[in-house]
Amino acid sequence: MNFDSVELRFYKNDENENLICEITYSFSDSSMIIIDRTFVNDDYRGQGIAAKLVKRVAEMAREENKKIIPRCPFPKGILERNSSLYADVMC
């Protein structure tokens, strides 16, 4: 799934421009990405979309040589449960 990126978020809309999912983030400094929030529309839950959003932020962190601080509980759980995949970007 490809996500659009605008205003410090990755998101996906459906064909009617309704929000399917999004993850918002900010930068604490030049080396940290803070994940502030994740959202998946009820109609799309249970499909692994939020995990894909976290993965996309991790890819960006790797590309920019940054670490992730997850303030939102969902991405924090994803990163911790999959620490072998995300150890290089975890703070």
Rank of each mutant, 00 (worst) to 15 (best):
M1N: 04
N2V: 00
N2S: 05
S5Q: 14
R9I: 09
R9N: 12
Y11A: 00
D14R: 05
E15A: 09
N16R: 13
N16H: 13
I20G: 06
E22M: 13
E22D: 12
I23A: 02
I23N: 01
I23W: 00
Y25D: 08
Y25L: 11
Y25T: 09
Y25P: 10
S26C: 14
F27T: 13
F27A: 12
S28P: 04
D29T: 05
S30H: 14
S30V: 14
S31A: 14
S31H: 15
M32P: 05
M32C: 13
M32K: 15
I33S: 04
I33V: 12
I34L: 14
D36Y: 10
D36L: 14
T38D: 11
F39I: 10
F39R: 08
D42N: 15
D42F: 11
D43K: 14
G46T: 06
G46R: 00
G48F: 06
G48L: 10
I49P: 00
A51M: 08
L53W: 00
V54L: 07
V54H: 03
V54A: 06
K55D: 07
K55W: 00
R56K: 13
E59D: 11
M60Y: 04
A61T: 04
E63N: 01
E64M: 06
E64G: 01
E64W: 00
N65S: 12
N65K: 12
N65H: 10
K67A: 04
I68V: 09
I68L: 11
I68R: 02
P70T: 14
P73Q: 03
F74G: 04
F74M: 09
F74H: 08
K76L: 11
K76P: 00
K76V: 05
K76R: 12
E80I: 14
R81N: 15
R81E: 12
R81F: 09
S83H: 10
S84H: 07
S84E: 09
Y86P: 13
Y86D: 07
A87W: 01
A87Q: 08
V89L: 03
V89N: 01
